[in-house]
C-alpha cells in the first residue's frame, strides 16, 4: 500500500498540496483526477522522492522511500526520460544493469506487444513510440506498484488503445497502479478507485463500481458535480 498522510507542498507562495491523505492499494487501479489546478504530477514525484514535501509523510508498505525501493515502485512520467541517443536496446540494457527487478522476458514481450524496433534511436521515434518506450521501462520491472503520469497525453488513438489494453493485461496483473489522467473516458471501466483533487485538497475519494451501484453515477458524473459546484 502506498500511503500519503497529510502531505503539504508549496511552490513559492502557492499551495499545491494542502493536506493530502489517501492510499493506493496493491491489486487495484487508483486514478488521480484533478478538477482544476495542478498537483497530480507533484504527488507522483513526491512519492518517488523526486521533489521534497513541506509537511506530511509518504510510505510504501509502511516504509519511507529509499534507493532499493525503486525496485519495488516504478514511475512512468509523461516526459521522455531515457537519453535520446540511446537505442531502445541500449536503454533496455541500461535498465538491466541497475535494476534487479528488471525482467528481460517481460521486456521482450512488451517490445513485441508495442511493436518497437529495438535498433532505433529513441530520438528518432515518433511521439507515440517514445511514450511506449517510457512504458516499457516501467512495465518490464517486476515491481509491486506502478505510477503513471498522464499516459494518454498527446498520443494517437491507436497507441491509446494499446495503452488501455495494458491495464487489463498481464502486464499489470496484481500490481498496484496509480495513474493520473484528465482523459478519464479511456479508462473509466478499468479503474477501481478515484481520488478527485481540487485546489490542493481531496474533494472525493471513492470506488468507481460502488459509486455506480449505490448512487448510479459514473465517474464523469461525479467529476461534473465537482466542476459545477
Amino acid at each position: 500500500m502506498i500511503e500519503l498522510k497529510n502531505v503539504h507542498k508549496h511552490f513559492g507562495r502557492k499551495k499545491v498540496l494542502d493536506g493530502i491523505s489517501f492510499t493506493a492499494n496493491k491489486g487495484e487501479i487508483t486514478c488521480l483526477v484533478g478538477v482544476n489546478g495542478v498537483g497530480k504530477t507533484t504527488i507522483l514525484n513526491a512519492i518517488m522522492n523526486l521533489t521534497p514535501i513541506k509537511k506530511g509523510e509518504i510510505t510504501i508498505d509502511g516504509e519511507l522511500m529509499r534507493p532499493d525501493l525503486y525496485n519495488k515502485v516504478a514511475f512512468i512520467p509523461d516526459v521522455a526520460i531515457m537519453l535520446p541517443n540511446m537505442t531502445v536496446h541500449e536503454a533496455m540494457d541500461f535498465m538491466k544493469d541497475y535494476y534487479v527487478s528488471w525482467n528481460c522476458k517481460r521486456a521482450k514481450e512488451i517490445t513485441r506487444f508495442f511493436r518497437l524496433n529495438l535498433t532505433e534511436k529513441i530520438s528518432e521515434l515518433s511521439k507515440g513510440n517514445q511514450a511506449k518506450v517510457n512504458l516499457l521501462m516501467g512495465l518490464a520491472l517486476d515491481v509491486d506498484y506502478i505510477l503513471m503520469d498522464e499516459p494518454f497525453s498527446g498520443i494517437d488513438i491507436f497507441t491509446r488503445e494499446q495503452i488501455t489494453d495494458v491495464f487489463s493485461s498481464r502486464l499489470v496483473e496484481d500490481r498496484g497502479v496509480l495513474i493520473t489522467t484528465h482523459e478519464i473516458f479511456d479508462i473509466e471501466h478499468l479503474i477501481d478507485k478515484v481520488v478527485l483533487l481540487d485546489n490542493g485538497v481531496i474533494y472525493k475519494e471513492f470506488n468507481a463500481e460502488e459509486m455506480r451501484e449505490t448512487e448510479g453515477k459514473s465517474v464523469v458524473d461525479v467529476m461534473r458535480e465537482a466542476y459545477n459546484r
Binding site: 491489486g27 487495484e28 487489463s168 493485461s169 471501466h189 478499468l190 479503474i191 477501481d192 463500481e209
Partner: peptide, 17 residues
C-alpha cells in the same frame, strides 16, 4: 477472469466480482 477483463477492457477486480 484475466482473459475476460482484457477482452472486455474492464478491471479484473470487476470480473472477479
Amino acid at each position: 477472469r484475466r482473459q475476460l477483463a482484457n477482452q472486455l477492457k474492464i478491471n479484473p477486480n470487476t470480473v472477479q466480482r
